[in-house]
């Protein structure tokens, strides 16, 4: 079964394609200096395919293309239905790629339930330990942070973080970032949702906290809105050949951002996303034009 899935995944990759790709942009995780390719892989909705073998194989193909293109970080959550199990199957089919940077979350209101949920998540992924565990949407954050910091101190976890999305609870996120020794914060940020620029991104830079950007395409709503609209001429100045690449380049040009984690079900899209981290990024002036252009559409 695993061999068949791996075969399907590899069939989706044209021979030599990965070798032809340039090395993607990487950013340092401030708390360790470890380099992280700036485009990761989210799994919200896209990897929740249940027991459907054909769709599971598609997800494995996406993961294969992601690793072949130099990607490291895959992010999921207990909230994402079957995504964790699908990732675990994919990793097993791909022979557990050494490049994997496993980013997971704890998502339960009771702090006492956190360790059991983390163990179950670890079993689903088939990993000995996670690289990063985050408190999902700040649910039960005080108790879970205690657990995660204790795990990190015991060597059972490398990094600790918190997450929010769609601009929610930024005040509390800011307080926690200011007071807790976090390694990562995950938030939503894109050319039409720039609230994080006001306080969170500067604070992350000041405190040495790595930033993961989720929902760069607003769960696909942003790219759907742009479908059919012609790319502006200035996209060519930074080598962006699609709206998705233009949006990702806008995000990655923000110095405080460490990694963006677009989610996709398509191999061509994961390659397109990874390619956004290669070549030039927009400067401040061009970023302003990108935001203005998208905001006007």
């Amino acid at each position: 079964m695993a061999t068949a899935a791996l075969g399907t995944a590899m069939l989706a990759l044209p021979p030599g394609r990965a070798l032809a790709q340039p090395t993607p942009l990487a950013r340092a995780i401030p708390s360790s200096g470890e380099m992280m390719p700036a485009v990761g892989l989210g799994s919200w909705i896209t990897f929740n395919v249940g027991n459907d073998p054909a769709l599971q194989a598609e997800c494995t193909a996406v993961m294969a293309a992601f690793f072949a293109g130099g990607g490291h970080m895959i992010d999921s959550s207990p909230m994402y239905g079957s995504s964790q199990a699908v990732i675990g199957r994919g990793l097993a089919a791909l022979g557990r790629p050494a490049a994997l940077f496993s980013a997971e979350k704890v998502w339960t209101s009771a702090g006492s339930n956190g360790p059991a949920q983390i163990d179950e998540t670890r079993r689903l992924w088939g990993v000995e330990r996670f690289d990063l565990l985050q408190v999902h949407n700040l649910l039960g954050w005080e108790a879970h942070l205690d657990t995660l910091f204790a795990m990190k101190a015991a060597g059972r976890l490398r990094y600790v973080g918190i997450t929010t999305s769609e601009g929610r609870r930024h005040d509390l996120v800011e307080q926690i970032m200011a007071r807790q020794p976090l390694d990562f914060v995950q938030l939503s940020y894109n050319p039409v949702d720039r609230e994080a620029e006001q306080r969170l991104l500067p604070l992350a830079a000041a405190r040495g906290i790595a930033v993961i950007v989720n929902r760069p395409f607003q769960q696909g709503a942003l790219t759907r809105r742009l479908e059919g609209a012609p790319l502006p001429a200035f996209a060519g100045e930074i080598g962006a050949t699609s709206w998705a690449q233009l949006i990702l380049k806008f995000i990655l040009a923000e110095p405080a951002v460490t990694v963006a984690i677009p989610a996709t079900t398509r191999v061509d899209h994961v390659r397109e996303n990874l390619a956004a981290a290669s070549g030039p990024l927009p400067d401040r002036e061009l970023r302003g034009r990108i935001a203005a252009h998208l905001g006007a559409l």
């Binding site: 909705i45 929740n48 249940g50 459907d52 769709l55």
Partner: peptide
């Protein structure tokens, strides 16, 4: 919404 329409209808 936790899943895509495609996954839902394939059920």
């Amino acid at each position: 919404l936790l899943f895509s329409p495609r996954v839902y209808w394939r059920l």
